[in-house]
Design a protein around this nucleic acid. Structure first.
Length: 312
DNA sequence: GGAGAGACCTGCGAGC
DNA sequence: TGCTCGCAGGTCTCTC
């Protein structure tokens, strides 16, 4: 499932293979994949025809390509971005036009010719939780740092609600502690809230909480500043480890733009390890086991011993 | 306004 | 063999 590391891997692929090219034709194969584009699939196709891709930008799990539309002058700032969210099963694949079209291909963009690069960008999404749409760009003082993929001084309207992501150096333990102190909710719900901290999904939330030895139901507001700093450190650590491994893949649903899977799932200590001995306390006299519990409509994995249920 | 629940969506595996 | 049901989970919408 694409979380921050997986989306960043895709962004890097798009920066390499798509930035600087022109979208010669856009074909929406399934209107449900562009339902967030308020003016409909035909408008999206017409708008993208002749547009030039200027960059590939990411914030949290949101990805966007600032584009210069065909009728915009080359010396003015672009007015819109092509937004992309991979949802649970979305893929952005750069492929040859002759390659067989995937069963779940939803949108196909024909790109201007480049001798060293395939001719199409395809949005493939089995479960249709993701999508593509156009969103106006707006100038913002909250500009993205270079590490997030761009030094753009503007972000799309539809990306404005997304908080800075875990790897953004502007996110501090002090600021996160202040934000969590206002929340009357469990720590896992808080770190999954993209308006507080973006990029964290179910898998990496469980991993970071396991590393921090925190139960997912621990009240967010109860954490000390030091514990928040420790948790933030673990979140960043697990994200960077996953990024170095090319992301996490449990099946074929997550691949990079070239169709290759990551292999960080082999390094997970909590998520998907139900019944296994906890790596933290395996060497002790009373080793804990990884439990799987339903919470908030999701599966949560924790150690029975070092992630004890918080006192009421 | 904040928090939680439910809907959306499809492929797969388990159970009958 | 074929059918039904539950599960996976990010985001949005609705309700309390």
């Amino acid at each position: 499932m694409p979380e921050l590391p997986e989306v960043e891997v895709v962004r890097r692929g798009l920066a390499t293979w798509v930035t600087g090219r022109t979208i010669e034709r856009a074909s929406v194969l399934d209107p449900r994949a562009v339902r967030r584009h308020g003016d409909g699939p035909r408008d999206l196709e017409l708008s993208l025809a002749g547009a030039s891709v200027l960059a590939a930008v990411r914030r949290g799990k949101f990805l966007w390509l600032p584009v210069r539309l065909a009728d915009e002058a080359p010396d003015v700032a672009p007015s819109v971005a092509l937004m992309a969210h991979l949802g649970m099963s979305g893929q952005l694949l750069v492929e040859d036009a002759e390659a067989p079209v995937e069963k779940h291909a939803r949108v196909v963009l024909d790109l201007s010719a480049r001798s060293d690069a395939p001719a199409q960008l395809r949005f493939v999404d089995q479960r249709l939780f993701g999508g593509l749409w156009l969103s106006p760009l707006q100038a913002t003082p909250d500009a993205l740092p270079g590490g997030a993929g761009s030094s753009e001084a503007s972000i799309p309207v539809d990306g404005a609600h997304v908080a800075r992501d875990v790897l953004d150096p502007a996110v501090t333990a002090l600021g996160l502690h202040a934000a969590l102190a206002k929340k009357q909710t469990a720590i896992k719900a808080a770190i999954l809230d993209q308006a507080i901290l973006s990029g964290v999904g179910n898998i990496y939330a469980d991993e970071a909480l396991w590393r921090a030895r925190l139960h997912y139901l621990t009240p967010a507001a109860r954490l000390s500043r030091a514990k928040v700093a420790e948790l933030l450190g673990h979140l960043r650590e697990v994200m960077r480890d996953a990024l170095a491994a090319g992301g996490t893949s449990f099946d074929s649903l997550y691949v990079n733009v070239n169709g290759a899977s990551g292999y960080f799932d082999r390094s997970l200590n909590a998520y998907g390890r139900e019944g296994e001995a906890c790596a933290h306390c395996a060497a002790t006299n009373r080793p804990g086991r990884i439990l799987r519990e339903k919470w908030g409509g999701r599966s949560s994995f924790r150690c029975s011993r070092c992630q004890r249920t918080p006192r009421a």
